[in-house]
Each structure stands twice: as structure tokens, then as C-alpha cells.
Amino acid sequence: MEDVAIIVRGLRKSYGGSLVLDGVSLEIPRGSIVGIVGPNGCGKSTLLRILAGVEDYDEGVVEVRGRPALVPQETILLPWRTLRGNIMLAAKIRRVPREVAEKRMLEAASILGLTDYLNMYPREVSGGTARKASILMALVLLPDILLLDEPFTGLDRDSIAALQETIARLRRAYKLTVVVVSHMLDELYSLSERIFVMSHRPSKIVRIEEGAGLRFNLRASKG
């Protein structure tokens, strides 16, 4: 039996009487990259927030075995702090020792190609760089599980491919379990080993697809 990082069974969640998640069940193997895909508004982000522990649910079982860190859909960086300042603030709030956070930040920044941007303010960098800084912010929290909400939104094809490769490298470097949410199946297909397909609201998992992630990740780890 494979080692499991996340187990969800019969998860139900409603907002003001409107059912959003209607008995979602899934299992995510430790160390894998999985995708969750579904139409807009089906509750993918809600599911991710529940997995991150920042949102309550009504019914079901949610077992997250490890420390999760969520990278939200919208890039949120404090405009009055540099990228470094934002990242170190996250570590400070989560009580990650400064030296440990600093070391992780520099290491991960080099994988993400952010080293030269750390002393810049969010307004001075592109959307793609700011997005990577959000991922870096999550990584200094020393997570076991990285939850990425629509990380490819607004990026061009080349940037998507580059980010996919970076995610695969980060997974390998930090032995992460990565969950990526998207509304585009093709964005997930090459990266993920397994893809959970959600239905329209009230949503549940209707299909599980095998992605090409194993091959992709192997290639990325050699690169």
C-alpha cells in the first residue's frame, strides 16, 4: 500500500445553504504531484483551503499527514516590503528559526530563479516573478505538502512550461507532496502523476486520470 499524505472522505461543504462540495473523496500519495481540475466555481479552491486548514468544513474526514502550505490563486505580497521582507515575515509569523528560513529562502530562490529579485519590491517585478515569490514564501514555512491554487493563471505557454519544470524540481529537492489546482486539464496533464476531475457544483470527484507527470518529473529531475 502506498504511503499517503492526504486522505479526504465524504467531504461536504456549503456556503449559506448552497452546497459546494458534495462528498468529495480522494487519496494523495506522499511525494507525488497531483492535479485537481474542474470547472470554474466548482469548489477547487475551497477544497485546497480546507486541506490547508484555513477553512472549516461541514462533514467528512480530512486527514493531512504533514505540514501544508497554500499558495493562493492571487499573488499576495505586502507592497511595503521587499520580496525578501515578505518571505522572512512569513517565516517569522510561523516561528521558523531565522537562519533556517534564510537558508531555505536562498536555496529555493536559486531553484526558482529569484535570487536577483529578492531585494526588490513587488511593484518592481513582473507578475510571474511575484507568483514565484509567493511560492517561495510558502517554501520557507518548511512544508511537507505544497498546495498551489491556479499557479499558471495569466502566464504564457513558455512561462507555464518553465514553472511546471520548477515545481517538479522543488518537489524533488524538498521531497514535497504537491497538489495543483487548475481549471485547465492540459496545464496539469504533463506535470501531474494523477489528476482528480471534479464535476460542476455541488461537486465531487467524477474521474481520476493518469497524467504524464512521472515521465515529466523524471526528465525534470535530470535537467
Partner: peptide, 16 residues
């Protein structure tokens, strides 16, 4: 509201 969301994601106390 994104500031508040970020604070929540990081597990900040109300004072933080």
C-alpha cells in the same frame, strides 16, 4: 481583504 487572507494563511494572531 487579501492582506487578511495572507495573515490567515500564515496563521498570524490577531495582534500580528
Amino acid at each position: 481583504d487579501r492582506f487578511r487572507l495572507l495573515a490567515r494563511l500564515l496563521g498570524a494572531t490577531k495582534l500580528e
